[in-house]
Amino acid sequence: MSVAHFAVGDRVQVRNLEVEEGLAGHMRAPVYCRGFTGEIERFCGIFGNPESLAYGRDGQPAQPLYRVRFRQIELWPDYRGAAADTLEIEVYQHWLKAS
């Protein structure tokens, strides 16, 4: 099991593991958020890694999961909404690096 090392409020960038590590197959980090920076909104717990579970493997090492909050005006160049609007998704720790 991987140790949780991000704290609420930390600025984190979503990695692009397809590019960085040649990761392929089942992934739960949508492309639209990869490379973008958000803030840890909360720690959600430790869960089996879906990239492993999806292939009948045991999901180990289990990964800390975080809810990450993004500002919409930073995610989308043409965002049509309020400057305060946000988007939150859950991201597994191995997809995140400190920003």
């Binding site: 869960f47 309020a82 946000t86 939150e88 998704i89 859950e90």
Partner: peptide, 15 residues
């Protein structure tokens, strides 16, 4: 209203 935040939740994991 423009002065309210719209917050979208994309349930990418088990929640």
């Amino acid at each position: 209203a423009a002065d309210r935040e719209v917050r979208v939740h994309d349930s990418t994991a088990d929640m």
